[in-house]
Amino acid sequence: MRRLVALPLSKSFQMAYQSIRVRFFRSLVTTTSLVLAVAFLTFTQAGNDITEGLLISQDPAFLQILSKIGYDVSPDAPSINSSPKQRWIVFLSLLVCVVGIINAQLMSVTERFREIGTLKCLGALDRFIVRIFVIEATMQGLAGGVVGALLGTLVALTASIFRFGSAAVSVMPWTDLGATIFYAVCTGTGLSLLGVLYPAIIASRMLPVEAMRVEQ
């Protein structure tokens, strides 16, 4: 008979949730950096979506404003895509965000060395530890992604209404915006997972004795 220890998924979720709830402020800081990065990504992307929608509508009033702020509105112009510069800035902001998350998660792992060692003494496998950290990061990523995406879209919408007038709402490309929000949430979650992977693996590989030796 193979002797196995187990950690049911529901229990892992409970442990991850508890850990976030108790260290709420620290989680909030980590999540905030994610919210800002995702909001920025969504803002630029949604801005492009909206402009594109206005262009497709071929409404002369909108076209006039668009050409005034520097867009090529001739019928054979290519569709509006993010410029290389825009993409570069978004990429940089995401990079900064990931580094921030890795930093915060490393701190959080160091803070919990003893806890991790104790869990291992009680029979936890390496992958239980990784799993708890990954679930935590997913929760933070989803929360940060959703809040960030909504925030970014909201700001982009408000900005466009100020710029083009409330009539712009009628030609909003809602499906495109929805897709943008969806991708932004996925990106947020992905970034959060990317940030936690290295710290979680360090944590799980630690021998229990080493974890216990840490002074706290």
Partner: peptide, 22 residues
């Protein structure tokens, strides 16, 4: 080894080592 730690051995530490969030 994890099974052994879990079922055969109970650990008590000088610093108690309870999980603080639970």
């Amino acid at each position: 080894l994890a099974w052994l730690r879990c079922r055969k051995i109970g650990y008590i530490f000088q610093t108690f080592n309870l999980i603080p969030v639970m």
